[in-house]
Write a protein that binds this DNA or RNA. Structure first.
Lengths: 196, 196
DNA sequence: CGGCTTTCTGATGGCACGTTCAGAAGTTTA
DNA sequence: TAAACTTCTGAACGTGCCATCAGAAAGCCG
C-alpha cells in the first residue's frame, strides 16, 4: 500500500503505533514487546494494529524501514561530504555514534529486531551494511591511503565494534559516547592507514 | 545441588540434555529451542528436563556454565603463557577465534543465550569479559608496549569485533576463519602499539 | 437527516510454551 | 522376593501470544 493512497488518519495512526513499538522494543526488549503491550502503550485496542499493519511482521518491517531511513538520512550525507577515504571512514564511525546519541531508542529497537530475527528478512540488512562499508575501504585502498588489509575482515571488525555500542549502552546508559567516538576513530585510523 | 551428590545416571542425563540443548540453541535459535523440542532431540519426555534441572532457567544456566568452562579452559592457559602484553593480546584474539573453530555449536548457543536474555543474569558475563580484557590492556600500558588509549573503549572495540564473528558465521558458515584471525590480530596490534 | 465508508473495540479461538503430577517402569537394597 | 527409592512418561493445566471478527462508533457526503 503506497503512502500516497493513505488517509491522513491512517498516516497518523501508523506513525503513532510505530513510535510506541519503538519505545516498547527499546524499553522492554523484543520478547516482551507484544502486540497487546504496544497497543496498551498507544492506548488503543490490539485490533487496531492488525487493522493498520495487517500483522506483527508488517509492523516490525515498518519499524525497521523507518529507523533505517532515519539512519541513512543522517549518515550518508556526512560520509559523502568527505574528500578522502580516511576522512570518510572517520565520518562513517562518527555519524554512526552520533545517530546513537540523537536516536537512542530507535536504534536500540532496530538492534533488538535484528538480533532476534535470525534467518529473518533482516540478516540481509547486515550484509548490506558490510558491503556499503567495504566501498569506503575499497576507495582508500584504490587511492593508496589504506594498507592492503582484507576488506571483509576489516568491515566485520569495524561494524562489530560499532554494533557493540548499543548493547553496551543498554547496560551502561551513562557511558561517555564522546570518549568512545574519539577512540574508535583513532583505532581504525591506525588500523587502516598505510604505514610510513 | 553439588556435583558430588549426583548419581551416575543423573550426571549422564544432565550431560546429554545439555548437549541437546546446545544443538537446539545453535541450530534452531533461542526462540525455537523449547523444552519440548530439546526433549524430542534427546528422545526423552519433557518432564525429565524439569526433573533433572528444575526448570528451563536452570537448564540455560547449566549450558552457559558448561560453555564458559570450555572456553576458559582453552583460552586462559594460552594467554597466560605469553611474556609480553602484545603477545597476550594476540593470543587473546587468536584463542577466541580458535574456540569458535573447535566448538562452534557451543559458542553459538552461548551467544544465543546472552543476546536473548537482556537484563538477565548474563549481562554480567559481558562486564566480566570486558574487565578481564582490560587487565591485558593495562599490562601493556604499564610496560609501555601500548599507547595511552582509553581502556574501556578499546575493550569494547576488541570484544565487539570478536563477538561479531559468531553472528557472521551463522549466515556465512564457510567463511575463512584463518584470514579473519590474521586480520583481527593485525588490526588491534596496530591500534594498540605505541607509535615509534 | 440518512446512507456509506472508515476506523475502532474487546472478546474469542487456536496455538505453543513451561510446568506439574499421578502413576508406570526401572533400579537398588535388605 | 519384597520393599523402597529413583527415574521416567505423557497428558493436563494455566498463561501469553497473534490473528480474527461481529458489531459499535466516528467521519463523510449527498
Amino acid at each position: 500500500m503506497p503512502s500516497e493512497s493513505r488517509t491522513f488518519i491512517e498516516e497518523a495512526r501508523r506513525a503513532q503505533i510505530i513510535d510506541c513499538a519503538i519505545d516498547a522494543l527499546a524499553t522492554l526488549g523484543y520478547q516482551q514487546a507484544s502486540m497487546t503491550k504496544i497497543a496498551k502503550l498507544a492506548k488503543i485496542s490490539p485490533g487496531v494494529i492488525s487493522y493498520h499493519f495487517g500483522g506483527k511482521d508488517e509492523l516490525i518491517k515498518a519499524v525497521v524501514t523507518h529507523v533505517v531511513e532515519l539512519a541513512v538520512g543522517l549518515m550518508v550525507p556526512r560520509i559523502m561530504a568527505q574528500t578522502t577515504a580516511a576522512a570518510a571512514l572517520t565520518a562513517y564511525i562518527e555519524s554512526n555514534l552520533e545517530f546513537m546519541r540523537l536516536h537512542r531508542n530507535p536504534l536500540i529497537a532496530l538492534v533488538e529486531v535484528i538480533l532476534h530475527d535470525r534467518d529473518g528478512p533482516y540478516s540481509g540488512q547486515q550484509e548490506t551494511a558490510l558491503t556499503d562499508l567495504e566501498k569506503v575501504l575499497d576507495w582508500g585502498q584504490q587511492t593508496g591511503e589504506f594498507r592492503d588489509f582484507d576488506q571483509r575482515s576489516m568491515a566485520i571488525a569495524i561494524r562489530g565494534a560499532i554494533d557493540a555500542v548499543p548493547t553496551y549502552l543498554i547496560s551502561n546508559p551513562d557511558y561517555d559516547l564522546g570518549a568512545l567516538t574519539t577512540e574508535l576513530t583513532t583505532i581504525f585510523s591506525l588500523a587502516t592507514r598505510r604505514p610510513a
